[in-house]
Design a protein around this nucleic acid. Structure first.
Lengths: 242, 242
DNA sequence: CGAGTGGTTGATATCTTTCAACCCACGTGG
DNA sequence: CCACGTGGGTTGAAAGATATCAACCACTCG
């Protein structure tokens, strides 16, 4: 059935952009080669020159960089409906890795097809460009998080952001959401050591504002989490706003 | 004379993108309203809804965010030929501030004019989109810098990056470049305290790899600076690369 | 049952911040 | 012409945050 792969993408794009029926159809008719991929699979690598971009149909993925001395910094987490390496359309050499966090369904779309799409459908072009700009906005906030907030606030901010983004997809329930991430990965997201992440989480649990349970996070006191993390949702640019 | 304002922009864009004579002409004929602005002037503010974007014709500027508790994080430094708030074309509400570091000549370009330009000149559209993607690439490296590198390396990385970007404009000489920035601003760039920036700089000076003199930095041992900062220029995407 | 992964703990070392001065160059007003 | 105020840089001491190291525990999987 055409459109099942692009469902989350279309949902996301139409929430903020004015796309007409033909725009949507053009997206749904993109030739997509989908693949089921195991967790922790690095499917795009620093230095690669991809000829296709990759839509996350289902599951979580992340972007990361390795420093020459072997440290890892995770740059962003990605959820269904996002195209984390859309940039490779214009930047031909990858400057970071893309890895699945969980088992994922990925949809690979040839750059040629995307180029054709943005040539024929200016609305879609604008919407995709916009997506890459939101991406950058999230990076900026990530810089603030890592540069200026203490560990507890960093963690809180990240959880608040994830909650907000997942909420838009309808993947949250009463402040809870599924996110199968290890403390090692959290540490690499936040620029902290694993041990410190562990202690920070414990503190948040003791304060009763966060609970974790296997693969899901519960924000028990969402307002508190957002306040502690200084979370202000404007930077996500989720509203039409014009 | 048409084109004097856009000189640095055209220089930058044509270095990596294939623009024909008409593309260039279209850029040069953009209606630009230029203005001389004092140092430390915040000319775009968090929350604004700009109807124009701003080209740096001459001088330095930076983007920054303030946290609710009054801390500042500088997100990027900008040099002539860049349009730091090009994003406002698609993201209608600003999520950060834009401030001049030095006295600047700024060129304001109406969004309407830019929209017309990208509609008529797809090559230019692609080039501008690409610029915003390079912007994001620099943010990513900035995240790594702040998240994973100790103070000395952070400083070194930033200096190496600035040198590289200024070199492309021909504004470096034997590892030296002009950058009138205070230690307070450096601290906000690097996510450090002023005191620590001061000590870090002293250390770099004592090691003989960096010298500072009023408004100019000298990278006495450029290789050493790049190694210490783990600087790898690919992420700047300065080469055509296709 | 043993190995491996992810989580937890305590002790200690290191890095970075904070605080509180102080210095210096510069520009301004008396 | 000089006193003074100011911004930027520098310093030392102490406090605080985070990292590191080295175990140990719990659970899952083959």
């Amino acid at each position: 059935m055409p459109g099942t792969l692009t469902a989350a993408l279309v949902q996301k794009l139409t929430k903020v952009n004015r796309l007409d029926q033909n725009d949507i159809l053009a997206i749904q008719q993109l030739p997509i080669h989908s693949k089921r991929v195991a967790a922790q699979h690095r499917f795009v690598r620093d230095g690669d020159r991809p000829s296709e971009s990759c839509l996350i149909v289902d599951g979580f993925a992340f972007r990361s960089k390795l420093t020459p001395d072997g440290q890892r910094q995770i740059l962003s987490l990605h959820i269904p409906g996002e195209i984390p390496d859309l940039q490779s359309l214009h930047l031909h050499v990858m400057d970071h890795d893309l890895t699945t966090l969980t088992e994922c369904t990925l949809g690979f779309i040839k750059h040629d097809a995307l180029r054709e799409l943005i040539k024929m459908r200016p609305n879609v072009a604008a919407a995709l460009w916009r997506e890459t700009l939101v991406d950058a906005a999230i990076f900026r906030e990530w810089i603030v998080n890592v540069g200026r907030r203490p560990a507890r606030a960093r963690m809180a901010h990240m959880l608040a952001e994830l909650h907000e983004r997942l909420a838009l997809l309808g993947r949250t329930l009463n402040g809870s959401f599924e996110l199968p991430i290890t403390q090692i990965e959290l540490a690499d997201c936040l620029g902290l050591s694993v041990v410190h992440v562990n202690r920070t989480l414990q503190q948040l649990r003791q304060e009763g504002i966060v609970a974790t349970e296997r693969r899901t996070f519960h924000l028990l006191d969402q307002a508190k989490v957002e306040e502690l993390g200084q979370f202000e949702r404007i930077y996500l640019h989720q509203r039409p706003s014009i």
